[in-house]
Write a protein that binds this DNA or RNA. Structure first.
Lengths: 347, 347
DNA sequence: CGCGCAACCGTATGCGCAACCGTATGCGCG
DNA sequence: CGCGCATACGGTTGCGCATACGGTTGCGCG
């Protein structure tokens, strides 16, 4: 272990001078500084941030607690977060909550124990105890993607508008002539699930569609349970003519179910969903979806956390980014409507 | 900040007893232990791992240095790594190398400074200085995805076979009747680029295809430069009738180029690539590709690092996982061949 | 020539913890 | 009764660093 002591000995100065050279924290004679740098390079010294952290109380670290890192949706957000956090001089500690309140609590505990300067969290369905911990330990916190009732915890939130975009998805489907439209909802309790369901109900209402409660099923936010939900939907005595799915995995699940049932999209059943896909234009059918600004989501979250770390007394802020409807082919062609974003990619 | 001291005071014992209770590191009288735990819960104490790390010299942390976290390929690997690392009681520190030797060095320096117990690295094209650092600091290292000459650094490597699978890709294309087959190669210097190019050349040779050097172009491993490479290829006086792309992003780039040129796949030009896609079966055309076992890649890498941390004197090991050809439609239908994995998904 | 002040540098301390070492107590046994 | 040993616990140190504080120069100026 090459320590500052060793460098100091090598350079013929005291350990404190080495520290000051490294941190530019007081005036140093040019020759002295040069000697120190030379010694640093000769010895291959790397400043030990563990010791530094213990001393300063700051780890220059940000905790990122999310579920399903392998979901391409989160992947892009994570990428943007890493970029921004690192640009602001910190490092990302990555933990997976697996969308389970218990594991979320443990994950955040881990981050707290590691003295992260702040935490980026995509909260699970029951984040109360996690919020408790965060508040007791005064950890600057920013919620990503999902909104939640933070109680007395002063945390910022960054996400997209969910209600209106899903309603617009329903508008679009209705405009294509569908009247019995179903919704595959996400994991109950999640902010996004709640809001998107509300958006669906708003859309059903304002388009005068069939409000049959049988048309709303819980998809559990993942592909498998959505597959089952869609199968159930299509098994109804009076099945829907179109389906709205609450996120990307559920859209795929529904897609597979339709395919296994020998149903074509959009000829037999319309299918639209929340979340766009990388390379979505290569899909057949080309899915009509609501797309989120993933990169901005990550960047904004990181920036806001940065600000909150700098001033923890900041009032809680809520940022809603726009989610935009991307019209492609999967809702059918019956009544081409106008005024919407048409995807410019090749057929 | 509630420290061990505070807990000790609260419980009426010494700080050292609190430490021993927490770490189960010596016998404690049941009542004493209970009192300590009670004090811990009352005060909301969380063991400070910064201080512990300084003392023990182990951070229970693993550094993960890769490029382009937002690439779905790496996303799945990262997910698997996080799962495995966390299962083995450590936390992941995430840094992005951006595939640039300079930034890679800084990223690894960062990880070393944070005293990671070990490092998982997807090496850039010129990793020599990074390897130097790793060796000087004796950091247990495992290379992921890309193989590289580690010199005197005793690092393990985990990746897939590249040569034979790419050659099989060429076999397949040749079997479909193509004779002028082009290759879009990845960033020069990357182990994967080198090996896949070798695989292509092997395939060209053993199938007696046109060895025209103009048919091999550098795609830079990303979508944009592959787009340009593919455009150049199709602008040739005697253009290829099929293209093999070196990774997923380059396959997409080529796809877009063909599409913009008004060329259909596979009718006008055949296109196959390395790396499968999530939801690849929804693509039209359904791409024939070589798929990597991403989850196993991550899991194995994490496990091997674990073992190397436990015993740093382990000899360097190299693990090659199988990459399997998944035949779909994108190379054309001229001569259906047999004996290969047929993708079972719906047309 | 000597004082003051700036420029430069070293000494010493403590961050919170694990672990070494030492002490106290109780108990069995010769 | 006293020795030896096991059990239970506390005091103390030092991990590597940042930083408060103090010391030592050297130089300008009256």
């Amino acid at each position: 272990m090459v320590t500052m002591q060793a460098v100091a000995r090598e350079a013929g100065v005291s350990q404190s001078t080495v520290s000051h050279v490294i941190n530019r924290t007081r005036a140093i004679a040019p020759e002295t500084e040069a000697a120190v740098w030379r010694a640093i390079h000769r010895t291959g010294y790397v400043n030990d941030s563990i010791a530094r952290s213990l001393r300063t109380g700051s780890t220059q670290t940000v905790g990122l607690a999310i579920a399903a890192i392998s979901n391409p949706f989160f992947a892009e957000v994570v990428g943007a977060i890493e970029r921004q956090v690192s640009a602001m001089g910190r490092t990302v500690l990555l933990v997976d909550t697996h969308d389970d309140p218990e594991r979320e609590l443990m994950a955040v505990q881990e981050l707290v124990a590691r003295r992260c300067d702040g935490i980026l969290l995509a909260p699970s369905a029951s984040p109360a105890r996690t919020f408790d911990l965060l508040e007791r330990r005064n950890v600057p916190t920013v919620l990503v993607d999902r909104f939640a009732d933070t109680g007395t915890l002063a945390a910022d939130s960054v996400g997209v508008h969910n209600v209106e975009p899903v309603a617009e998805l329903v508008d679009h489907v209705a405009g294509r002539g569908h009247t019995r439209v179903a919704f595959i909802a996400g994991l109950p309790g999640l902010g996004t699930s709640r809001e998107r369901l509300a958006g669906f109900e708003l859309g059903v209402q304002r388009n005068g569609l069939d409000p049959d409660p049988d048309l709303v099923v819980v998809g559990g936010s993942d592909e498998q349970s959505s597959y089952e939900a869609a199968s159930r939907l299509l098994g109804l005595a009076d099945p829907p003519s179109a389906i709205v799915a609450g996120n990307n995995a559920m859209t795929i699940g529904a897609m597979r179910a339709l395919s296994d049932l020998g149903l074509r999209v959009p000829e037999d059943v319309g299918l639209v969903g929340f979340d766009d896909f990388p390379w979505a234009t290569l899909f057949r059918p080309r899915l009509t979806v609501v797309a989120q600004p993933l990169t901005e989501l990550g960047t904004r979250a990181a920036t806001m956390l940065h600000e909150r770390i700098a001033d923890p007394s900041l009032p809680a802020r809520e940022v809603r980014l726009p989610a935009t409807l991307i019209v492609r082919d999967s809702a059918g062609h019956r009544t081409p409507d106008a005024g919407l974003t048409e995807d410019p990619s090749p057929p």
